[in-house]
Design a protein around this nucleic acid. Structure first.
Length: 298
DNA sequence: AAAAGACGCAACCGCCAAGTC
DNA sequence: CGACTTGGCGGTTGCGTCTTT
């Protein structure tokens, strides 16, 4: 029963990666693909913990990662998404093609907080989200919270996508989706669906089945979430995710071009509409109204 | 020019849901 | 069904670099 421990830490290197290590890791993943992080270091000839390899790959070596300064549009989007989602960096990163959660987190902590404070805005720590984000909101739907309420660990896959009653307020957490920068206008939406959902799912047949189901749902919503009844969007996380992803694709499709401010406005407005119509984030929404439309304007 | 402090960012750590046995 | 592993997340740390004194 069970397996061997994740990694034996004795004799493993720590700290900054050398270019040789980077090369070994990159070459190995090029040949064998991502995953199997535990056995990867040994197979690749690295004296690193698998976790460390994964982090290095995800945050630094992975192709398509944008480096360098954040654009004004990206900045705005981060601020807005943060005001909605709190410190859910992976979710925010999923909406910023080519940016990693770590990078966004660092940028927020070092630049944006300061910038907002200088503008006279105190970015509120998200009591509803960030405070519980680690224990309760991880990996999408409020499973952590529901576990607490139920008082028993639930490994039930069927909980996926359920809206969980949390105290008085219905709160729904979408699953993080990572959008790759490689998505282009020419890519079909199915391709987008698969490439993004696969990044967070295993390669099991079940996961593939789920992807197929998502595709079907996607067709059902006609690819045009703007025409949807937003109330229906909250019926299942898959559909809601697709809604968010659709928006991300708008962003990502414009990735190669300068991001359009009106498009950002639209995304933001639709988020707000979605939230307000469903009493989503009741408390924080109040703050939302006072949030700056454009940080640079302040 | 040197020391001290501030800053930025890569990497680590601990936690936990999902998956496996 | 439960013990265990894996992968992924957010928070935090440590160190190199930059700025100020």
């Amino acid at each position: 029963m069970g397996r061997k421990p994740c990694c034996v830490k004795e004799g493993l290197r720590k700290g900054p990666w050398s270019s040789k290590e980077d090369l070994l890791l990159t070459n190995y993943i090029k040949e064998n693909g991502e995953g199997q992080w535990r056995s990867l270091p040994k197979n690749a000839g690295l004296l690193r913990c698998g976790k460390s390899c994964r982090l290095r790959w995800m945050n630094y070596l992975r192709p398509g990662i944008k480096r360098g300064n954040f654009s004004q549009d990206e900045e705005d989007l981060i601020v807005r998404l943060h005001s909605l989602l709190g410190n859910r960096w992976s979710l925010i990163a999923g909406r910023l093609p080519g940016r990693t959660d770590n990078e966004i987190k660092n940028y927020w902590n070092t630049h944006l907080i300061k910038k907002l404070k200088n503008a006279g805005i105190e970015p509120k720590p998200h009591k509803n989200f960030s405070k519980c984000s680690k224990k309760e909101s991880r990996k999408g739907p409020q499973q952590g919270k529901s576990r607490k309420i139920q008082g028993k660990k639930s490994n039930n896959k069927n909980n996926k996508g359920q809206i969980v009653q949390v105290e008085k307020t219905k709160v729904f957490f979408p699953k993080p989706i990572r959008i790759s920068c490689g998505i282009s206008r020419n890519n079909s939406f199915e391709n987008v669906t698969l490439s993004t959902t696969c990044s967070s799912n295993s390669n099991s047949g079940e996961a593939n089945l789920e992807n197929k189901e998502n595709e079907v749902k996607l067709e059902e919503v006609s690819f045009f979430p703007r025409d949807l009844d937003f109330g229906k969007l909250l019926e299942g996380d898959a559909i809601y995710d697709e809604f968010l992803m659709e928006e991300s694709c708008h962003i990502s499709n414009k990735c190669s071009l300068p991001m359009n401010e009106s498009m950002l406005e639209k995304v933001y407005e639709e988020y707000l509409l979605l939230l307000s119509e469903n009493c989503y984030l009741q408390d924080d929404h109040q703050n939302e109204q006072n949030f700056p439309v454009n940080v640079s304007d302040q």
